[in-house]
Design a protein around this nucleic acid. Sequence first.
RNA 1: GGGCGCUUAGCUCAGUUGGUUAGAGCGACUCGUUUACACCGAGUAGGUCGGGGGUUCGAAUCCCUCAGCGCCCACCA
Length: 711
Amino acid sequence: MIELPKAYNPQETESRIYKLWEESGFFNPDNLPDKGKGRFSMVLPPPNVTGTLHLGHAVTVTIEDILVRYQRMLGKKTLWLPGTDHAAIATESKIEKELIKKEGKNRNDLGRPAFLKRVDAFAKESQQTILNQLRKMGASLDWSRLAFTLDEKRQRAVYTAFKRMYDAGLIYHGEYLINWDKKGQTTVSDEEVEYETTKGTLYTFRYSKNFPFPIASTRPETKLGDVAVAVHPSGKWKEYIGKKFEIDNFVGTKLTIEVVGDEAVDPEFGTGAVGITPAHSKVDAEIAQRHNLPSKQVINEFGKIMHTGSGLDTLNIQEARDRVVEWLKNENLLEKEEIIEHNIAKAQRSGGIIEILPKRHQFFVNVNKPIVDRDGKTLRELMCEAVTTGKIKIIPERFEKNYFHWIDTLRDWNISRQVWYGHRIPAWCKGEEIKVEQESPGEGWEPIEDTFDTWFSSGLWTFSTLGWPDETMDLKTYHPTDVLETGYDILFFWVARMILMSSFLLGEVPFHTVYLHGLVRDENRKKMSKSLGNVIDPLVMTEKYGTDALRMALIFNTASGTDSVISEEKIKGMKHFANKFWNIARFILMNNTGVMPSSKPKARTDADRVILEQLSAVRESVSRNIEQFQLHEAAQAIYQFIWHDFADVYLEASKPQLKNENKENTEQILLHTLCTTLKLLHPFMPFVTEEIYAQLPITDKKLLLVEEWPR
RNA sequence: GGGCGCUUAGCUCAGUUGGUUAGAGCGACUCGUUUACACCGAGUAGGUCGGGGGUUCGAAUCCCUCAGCGCCCACCA
């Protein structure tokens, strides 16, 4: 007879058990016996190196650890590879903010080398925090393969990738219109721009008294950079197409406005005429290109008016706008002012307003260029094909539609960032001439100061972590990875970029299945945020209720890809479940008279027969549901069985049976059922199951971590 | 403007290709201090599955339509 404590104590158990697992070496597939059952691999979406664990991470870790533990118990060589992301802009601005707060200096005061030294030091020191927090969640990650997006090996991968793409003509360079984040002082990709609906004033006016028709704009100050007016080729202003107007004085500057006819103009909207500002609008730039129009930049990177010679130069945007409007009023050129709803572009990261402006020495990934080595297909086509051919399956399936829709509207990817912390773009320039090399090509060549978009390096993650560009054993064995699990919010940022990179650089998909989970919300369906004060700290929850309880609560009753709601009550309920299970084991061990479990106990009573049938059904259900990524169904099935079939019914039925002549047989059924449920529950609640398993009277016992999945 | 999705018990949500009395967790109510567990047990109440129409022997599930909510993408000056 073995006597367990009356209540399960996660605080006492968890760190001890985790240490046991870690020391066993079984997180590393090299130490797993080769059972000829194949392999399974997955990368952890690398958390920001300076971050701390939030519920989003907790969901990711829970789901992935369930998949990994299941596969490992199936006997596969199972690799789950950890790492951290340098998160260029996020980390840099975090450090700079602290620097300003503590020392009153910004990054420029320190200079690039000194500033980077600080960031590096902070990142290194900070990294342990998030890694230990992942351990706290019970993650069975192979720590021996830990990677960092900015470590030496990954740097080599990034440079190699860039060089190969550049040589293949997939990366071009020059002066282009970019999304400028004035606040963050960097360019950002189209994906990093968010739109916010606000009310603004639409001004309808003429450039001058003798201009034949009015135009409308919410940004009159940008009109200083106008070079043309576009009208519909068969609209009401078509007679003016081809005419040029010299405006001698528009708010103190000279404009040459050519009237062009373009299909892109909606003749019914507004005045039917659009002022064309090629330097500050992508749509206008496209029109300008079609008609061979010049471009005139009038807003600089600090959001000030420039190069107009109008007396507005050096004013900021709002001041300039007021002055332009005032001038229009004074000149009697303003015909209408109306309040309209329109979208303003903001940088996702900094929240700053995005200005479209031209910038030199920008690098872009061309998604529309045919690639010789890939049967003349473009990156866009390769990305599309990976999913249409079924080589990659996205779960839930509806996200495949999102993915295709995104690809349809995809433009070239600007990978240059004016951020210091990150992979420096290995390129040099002499005037407009450019050379891609790591070391200086010689006299007169200036280095490109920019760094890569952080997603450029994380796009390589499935293979850069496995040793690419070297042809390592790991790469051969574990790539393509089996599953990529992450939140649906980074499907485009990350998942799509990984498909792009792998398709071109390796000629294969980076993973076979993409499994997307939803966002975690609070009880009021609100997104959790610090400012709302509704944040549930996963670490506080594990402290209070145990990691197993948190894990179970996070997947219970939440379908894949659907936003889920978590409340402290739910976590508490799962703590009760852990304790219930503990007491089931306690009861069984308490009544054990030295009987060992057998794999095929005989049913002698109706109760025996029922529970064994139910056990067989739940075993099948849990396996099938995990295979199909229906973790909530699997969790529900095992929960239901343990609490309501096994405990409520069979344990009660067993009490009289333990007193009669079938005593030993009943003990065997109890032990067998316990043993099987321990295994079935282990991926979900690894700590309590391992702890109970350690108490079972079994000879030649392994860690539950590497026990064989019931079949 | 285009696309995707949601609306099921008081609350939060499951419900896998249409199939017997629609489920769970939490909450509510009644009863129960029998040594596995009060972090518990036994039981009860509570839903015309958003409205309407259709297909079918049969619809929460498929189709149409209306209403409300959410997300993604594009962006018109």
